[in-house]
Simulated scan of single mutants.
Amino acid sequence: MEPVNTSTLSNASNIDLGHCNAHCRIILITLYGMVLLGGTTGTILMSRLMFKRNSQSMIATIVLNIMVLHSILLFSLPFRLSYYVLDVWEFGFFACRLASGVIYCHMYFTFVFYVAIVILRLLIYFKKLQMQELQKYHVVVLSIIIWMTGGLIFLPIFFLQYGTDSSYSEHHRCFEFYKDLNCRKFIILNYSMIVIMITTVMTLFLIQMGVIFQLIKSLWPDTWAHQEFRAQIKSFFFLLVIVVCFIPHHAFRVHFIQNYSKKENSELVLYNEIFVALTTACCLDMLCFIGGVIH
Protein backbone atom coordinates (compact mmCIF):
# COMPACT_ATOMS: atom_id res chain seq x y z
CA MET A 1 0.00 0.00 0.00
CA GLU A 2 2.90 2.35 0.64
CA PRO A 3 3.89 2.69 -3.05
CA VAL A 4 0.25 3.42 -3.96
CA ASN A 5 -0.04 6.19 -1.35
CA THR A 6 3.23 7.75 -2.49
CA SER A 7 2.10 7.74 -6.09
CA THR A 8 -1.24 9.26 -5.18
CA LEU A 9 0.39 12.07 -3.23
CA SER A 10 2.83 12.70 -6.05
CA ASN A 11 0.03 12.86 -8.62
CA ALA A 12 -1.98 15.22 -6.44
CA SER A 13 1.03 17.48 -6.10
CA ASN A 14 1.58 17.47 -9.85
CA ILE A 15 -2.06 18.34 -10.46
CA ASP A 16 -1.87 21.32 -8.10
CA LEU A 17 1.33 22.56 -9.69
CA GLY A 18 -0.05 21.96 -13.17
CA HIS A 19 -3.21 23.95 -12.42
CA CYS A 20 -1.08 26.77 -10.98
CA ASN A 21 1.20 26.77 -13.99
CA ALA A 22 -1.71 26.81 -16.44
CA HIS A 23 -3.37 29.71 -14.61
CA CYS A 24 -0.03 31.51 -14.38
CA ARG A 25 0.61 31.08 -18.09
CA ILE A 26 -2.71 32.69 -19.06
CA ILE A 27 -2.01 35.73 -16.89
CA LEU A 28 1.58 36.05 -18.07
CA ILE A 29 0.69 35.68 -21.75
CA THR A 30 -1.83 38.51 -21.35
CA LEU A 31 0.59 40.78 -19.44
CA TYR A 32 3.60 40.19 -21.66
CA GLY A 33 1.47 40.44 -24.81
CA MET A 34 0.13 43.85 -23.77
CA VAL A 35 3.62 45.07 -22.84
CA LEU A 36 5.11 43.82 -26.12
CA LEU A 37 2.44 45.50 -28.23
CA GLY A 38 2.20 48.76 -26.27
CA GLY A 39 5.90 49.00 -25.48
CA THR A 40 6.99 48.43 -29.08
CA THR A 41 4.47 50.96 -30.38
CA GLY A 42 5.49 53.57 -27.81
CA THR A 43 9.22 53.08 -28.34
CA ILE A 44 8.95 53.34 -32.13
CA LEU A 45 6.75 56.44 -32.02
CA MET A 46 8.96 58.12 -29.41
CA SER A 47 12.06 57.33 -31.49
CA ARG A 48 10.51 59.04 -34.52
CA LEU A 49 9.47 62.04 -32.43
CA MET A 50 12.94 62.47 -30.92
CA PHE A 51 14.56 62.08 -34.34
CA LYS A 52 12.36 64.85 -35.78
CA ARG A 53 13.01 67.20 -32.88
CA ASN A 54 16.72 66.32 -32.73
CA SER A 55 16.71 67.29 -29.05
CA GLN A 56 20.11 67.76 -27.39
CA SER A 57 18.81 68.18 -23.83
CA MET A 58 20.10 66.14 -20.90
CA ILE A 59 16.67 64.63 -20.27
CA ALA A 60 16.35 63.56 -23.90
CA THR A 61 19.71 61.78 -23.64
CA ILE A 62 18.61 59.88 -20.53
CA VAL A 63 15.27 59.02 -22.15
CA LEU A 64 17.24 57.63 -25.09
CA ASN A 65 19.03 55.29 -22.66
CA ILE A 66 15.68 54.18 -21.28
CA MET A 67 14.43 53.48 -24.79
CA VAL A 68 17.49 51.31 -25.48
CA LEU A 69 16.73 49.34 -22.31
CA HIS A 70 13.10 48.95 -23.31
CA SER A 71 14.14 47.73 -26.76
CA ILE A 72 16.41 45.05 -25.27
CA LEU A 73 13.62 43.81 -23.01
CA LEU A 74 10.99 43.91 -25.76
CA PHE A 75 13.27 41.82 -27.98
CA SER A 76 13.31 39.09 -25.30
CA LEU A 77 9.55 39.01 -24.72
CA PRO A 78 8.62 36.89 -27.80
CA PHE A 79 10.87 34.13 -26.40
CA ARG A 80 9.07 34.33 -23.07
CA LEU A 81 5.69 34.29 -24.79
CA SER A 82 6.60 31.23 -26.85
CA TYR A 83 7.52 29.41 -23.66
CA TYR A 84 4.29 30.26 -21.89
CA VAL A 85 2.21 29.40 -24.97
CA LEU A 86 3.95 26.08 -25.71
CA ASP A 87 4.97 25.29 -22.12
CA VAL A 88 8.31 24.14 -23.55
CA TRP A 89 11.62 26.01 -23.78
CA GLU A 90 13.34 25.24 -27.07
CA PHE A 91 16.18 27.77 -27.12
CA GLY A 92 18.80 26.23 -24.86
CA PHE A 93 19.75 26.71 -21.25
CA PHE A 94 22.00 29.75 -21.72
CA ALA A 95 19.25 31.57 -23.65
CA CYS A 96 16.90 30.78 -20.77
CA ARG A 97 19.30 32.33 -18.27
CA LEU A 98 19.81 35.32 -20.56
CA ALA A 99 16.08 35.95 -21.09
CA SER A 100 15.52 35.64 -17.36
CA GLY A 101 18.43 37.93 -16.48
CA VAL A 102 17.40 40.60 -18.99
CA ILE A 103 14.17 41.34 -17.12
CA TYR A 104 16.05 42.11 -13.88
CA CYS A 105 18.80 44.01 -15.67
CA HIS A 106 16.15 46.12 -17.41
CA MET A 107 14.32 46.83 -14.16
CA TYR A 108 17.36 48.05 -12.20
CA PHE A 109 18.97 50.01 -15.04
CA THR A 110 15.63 51.69 -15.82
CA PHE A 111 15.21 52.49 -12.14
CA VAL A 112 18.63 54.18 -12.05
CA PHE A 113 17.87 56.29 -15.14
CA TYR A 114 14.44 57.28 -13.78
CA VAL A 115 16.08 58.34 -10.52
CA ALA A 116 18.75 60.26 -12.46
CA ILE A 117 16.04 62.30 -14.20
CA VAL A 118 14.28 63.08 -10.92
CA ILE A 119 17.48 64.05 -9.08
CA LEU A 120 18.75 66.27 -11.92
CA ARG A 121 15.47 68.19 -12.02
CA LEU A 122 15.41 68.54 -8.24
CA LEU A 123 18.99 69.86 -8.24
CA ILE A 124 18.04 72.45 -10.85
CA TYR A 125 14.95 73.45 -8.85
CA PHE A 126 16.94 73.91 -5.64
CA LYS A 127 19.57 75.96 -7.54
CA LYS A 128 22.26 73.36 -6.83
CA LEU A 129 22.80 72.91 -10.54
CA GLN A 130 22.50 75.44 -13.34
CA MET A 131 20.97 74.36 -16.64
CA GLN A 132 23.51 76.35 -18.61
CA GLU A 133 26.32 74.47 -16.87
CA LEU A 134 25.09 71.19 -18.28
CA GLN A 135 26.37 70.15 -21.65
CA LYS A 136 25.30 67.09 -23.60
CA TYR A 137 28.62 65.39 -22.96
CA HIS A 138 28.03 65.62 -19.20
CA VAL A 139 24.94 63.43 -19.51
CA VAL A 140 26.70 61.14 -22.00
CA VAL A 141 29.47 60.62 -19.45
CA LEU A 142 26.86 60.00 -16.75
CA SER A 143 25.17 57.41 -18.99
CA ILE A 144 28.46 55.64 -19.69
CA ILE A 145 29.24 55.53 -15.96
CA ILE A 146 25.81 54.01 -15.22
CA TRP A 147 26.17 51.38 -17.94
CA MET A 148 29.73 50.46 -16.95
CA THR A 149 28.98 50.33 -13.21
CA GLY A 150 25.84 48.29 -13.79
CA GLY A 151 27.70 45.95 -16.11
CA LEU A 152 30.51 45.41 -13.61
CA ILE A 153 27.93 44.48 -10.99
CA PHE A 154 25.49 42.51 -13.14
CA LEU A 155 27.73 40.50 -15.45
CA PRO A 156 29.77 38.67 -12.76
CA ILE A 157 26.55 37.75 -10.93
CA PHE A 158 24.95 36.54 -14.15
CA PHE A 159 27.84 34.48 -15.51
CA LEU A 160 29.21 33.13 -12.24
CA GLN A 161 26.21 32.83 -9.93
CA TYR A 162 22.77 33.28 -11.48
CA GLY A 163 21.02 30.04 -12.44
CA THR A 164 24.22 27.97 -12.57
CA ASP A 165 22.89 25.09 -10.46
CA SER A 166 22.86 21.81 -12.41
CA SER A 167 19.24 21.14 -11.41
CA TYR A 168 18.12 23.94 -13.76
CA SER A 169 19.44 22.33 -16.92
CA GLU A 170 16.27 20.50 -17.99
CA HIS A 171 15.72 21.60 -21.57
CA HIS A 172 11.94 21.88 -21.38
CA ARG A 173 11.66 24.12 -18.30
CA CYS A 174 12.70 27.74 -17.84
CA PHE A 175 12.42 30.81 -15.58
CA GLU A 176 12.59 28.80 -12.34
CA PHE A 177 15.67 30.55 -10.95
CA TYR A 178 13.77 31.64 -7.85
CA LYS A 179 15.17 28.41 -6.37
CA ASP A 180 18.41 30.39 -5.91
CA LEU A 181 16.67 32.06 -2.96
CA ASN A 182 17.63 29.03 -0.90
CA CYS A 183 21.18 30.47 -1.04
CA ARG A 184 22.09 32.96 1.68
CA LYS A 185 24.07 35.30 -0.56
CA PHE A 186 21.10 35.74 -2.91
CA ILE A 187 18.82 36.41 0.04
CA ILE A 188 21.19 39.15 1.24
CA LEU A 189 21.42 40.59 -2.29
CA ASN A 190 17.63 40.66 -2.65
CA TYR A 191 17.08 42.32 0.72
CA SER A 192 19.74 44.91 -0.11
CA MET A 193 18.07 45.82 -3.41
CA ILE A 194 14.66 45.98 -1.71
CA VAL A 195 15.91 48.38 0.98
CA ILE A 196 17.80 50.56 -1.52
CA MET A 197 14.89 50.87 -3.95
CA ILE A 198 12.12 51.48 -1.41
CA THR A 199 14.20 53.94 0.63
CA THR A 200 15.24 55.87 -2.49
CA VAL A 201 11.71 56.05 -3.86
CA MET A 202 10.14 57.10 -0.55
CA THR A 203 12.73 59.86 -0.06
CA LEU A 204 12.41 61.23 -3.59
CA PHE A 205 8.63 60.90 -3.53
CA LEU A 206 8.31 63.03 -0.39
CA ILE A 207 10.74 65.66 -1.73
CA GLN A 208 8.97 65.71 -5.11
CA MET A 209 5.54 66.14 -3.54
CA GLY A 210 6.87 68.99 -1.41
CA VAL A 211 8.24 70.72 -4.50
CA ILE A 212 4.99 70.29 -6.43
CA PHE A 213 2.87 71.68 -3.58
CA GLN A 214 5.27 74.61 -3.20
CA LEU A 215 5.00 75.39 -6.92
CA ILE A 216 1.22 75.14 -6.84
CA LYS A 217 1.14 77.57 -3.90
CA SER A 218 3.47 80.09 -5.53
CA LEU A 219 2.25 79.88 -9.15
CA TRP A 220 -1.51 79.53 -8.65
CA PRO A 221 -3.77 79.99 -10.60
CA ASP A 222 -1.63 79.72 -13.78
CA THR A 223 0.36 76.77 -12.47
CA TRP A 224 0.24 74.61 -15.58
CA ALA A 225 1.39 77.47 -17.80
CA HIS A 226 4.84 77.43 -16.16
CA GLN A 227 7.48 75.16 -17.63
CA GLU A 228 9.09 74.55 -14.23
CA PHE A 229 5.88 73.07 -12.85
CA ARG A 230 5.41 70.83 -15.90
CA ALA A 231 9.00 69.59 -15.55
CA GLN A 232 8.38 68.57 -11.94
CA ILE A 233 5.15 66.82 -12.93
CA LYS A 234 7.15 64.79 -15.45
CA SER A 235 9.55 63.80 -12.67
CA PHE A 236 6.58 62.78 -10.55
CA PHE A 237 5.39 60.62 -13.45
CA PHE A 238 8.67 58.68 -13.47
CA LEU A 239 8.39 58.13 -9.71
CA LEU A 240 4.81 56.97 -10.21
CA VAL A 241 5.99 54.40 -12.77
CA ILE A 242 8.49 53.06 -10.22
CA VAL A 243 5.80 52.87 -7.53
CA VAL A 244 3.32 51.07 -9.80
CA CYS A 245 5.69 48.72 -11.64
CA PHE A 246 8.70 48.06 -9.39
CA ILE A 247 7.65 48.53 -5.76
CA PRO A 248 4.95 45.79 -5.74
CA HIS A 249 7.54 43.24 -6.87
CA HIS A 250 10.00 44.26 -4.17
CA ALA A 251 7.39 44.46 -1.42
CA PHE A 252 6.11 40.97 -2.29
CA ARG A 253 9.68 39.72 -2.54
CA VAL A 254 10.07 40.07 1.24
CA HIS A 255 7.09 37.75 1.80
CA PHE A 256 8.31 35.40 -0.95
CA ILE A 257 11.81 35.03 0.52
CA GLN A 258 10.48 34.39 4.00
CA ASN A 259 7.95 31.75 2.95
CA TYR A 260 9.44 30.07 -0.11
CA SER A 261 11.20 26.77 0.50
CA LYS A 262 12.46 23.79 -1.48
CA LYS A 263 8.93 22.41 -1.32
CA GLU A 264 8.10 25.05 -3.92
CA ASN A 265 4.91 26.73 -2.74
CA SER A 266 3.13 26.90 -6.10
CA GLU A 267 0.85 29.76 -5.04
CA LEU A 268 3.80 31.96 -4.08
CA VAL A 269 5.59 31.06 -7.32
CA LEU A 270 2.50 32.12 -9.27
CA TYR A 271 2.30 35.51 -7.56
CA ASN A 272 6.06 36.02 -7.88
CA GLU A 273 5.96 35.47 -11.63
CA ILE A 274 3.07 37.90 -11.98
CA PHE A 275 4.89 40.61 -10.02
CA VAL A 276 8.01 40.04 -12.12
CA ALA A 277 5.89 40.45 -15.26
CA LEU A 278 4.42 43.67 -13.84
CA THR A 279 7.90 45.23 -13.80
CA THR A 280 7.94 45.11 -17.61
CA ALA A 281 4.86 47.36 -17.74
CA CYS A 282 7.21 50.34 -17.35
CA CYS A 283 7.84 49.91 -21.09
CA LEU A 284 4.45 51.56 -21.58
CA ASP A 285 5.87 54.87 -20.30
CA MET A 286 6.74 56.05 -23.81
CA LEU A 287 3.22 55.25 -24.96
CA CYS A 288 1.96 57.54 -22.17
CA PHE A 289 4.13 60.36 -23.49
CA ILE A 290 2.98 59.81 -27.07
CA GLY A 291 -0.64 59.49 -25.94
CA GLY A 292 -0.51 62.92 -24.34
CA VAL A 293 -0.66 61.89 -20.70
CA ILE A 294 2.58 63.82 -20.19
CA HIS A 295 3.29 66.58 -22.70
Rank of each mutant, 00 (worst) to 15 (best):
Q258S: 15
L81Q: 13
T164L: 06
L160D: 06
K217P: 00
Q232Y: 02
V102Q: 05
A277Y: 11
V201E: 11
F275Q: 13
I188T: 04
S235E: 04
G151N: 03
T8A: 11
F159N: 13
V195N: 03
L49H: 09
S13K: 06
Y271A: 07
F75M: 15
S71Y: 04
F246K: 01
I157G: 04
Q227P: 00
F289I: 07
G150V: 06
F91Y: 15
W220S: 14
S7P: 01
L204A: 13
L204P: 14
L284E: 01
A251L: 14
R121M: 15
I15T: 15
L278M: 15
A231E: 08
I294R: 06
K234E: 08
L123W: 04
F246G: 00
S235R: 04
E170I: 03
S57R: 12
T149S: 15
V102K: 08
V254S: 06
V293W: 12
M67H: 05
Y162S: 11
R184M: 14
M34S: 04
R25E: 02
G292R: 04
L31N: 03
Y104D: 08
V102T: 14
H19P: 04
Q214N: 10
W224R: 14
Y84W: 09
Q208C: 01
H172P: 00
A225L: 15
S266A: 09
T280G: 11
P78V: 05
L215W: 05
E170F: 03
V63A: 13
N14A: 12
T203G: 12
V293Q: 04
S143P: 01
L270H: 05
L74I: 00
I62L: 10
M209E: 10
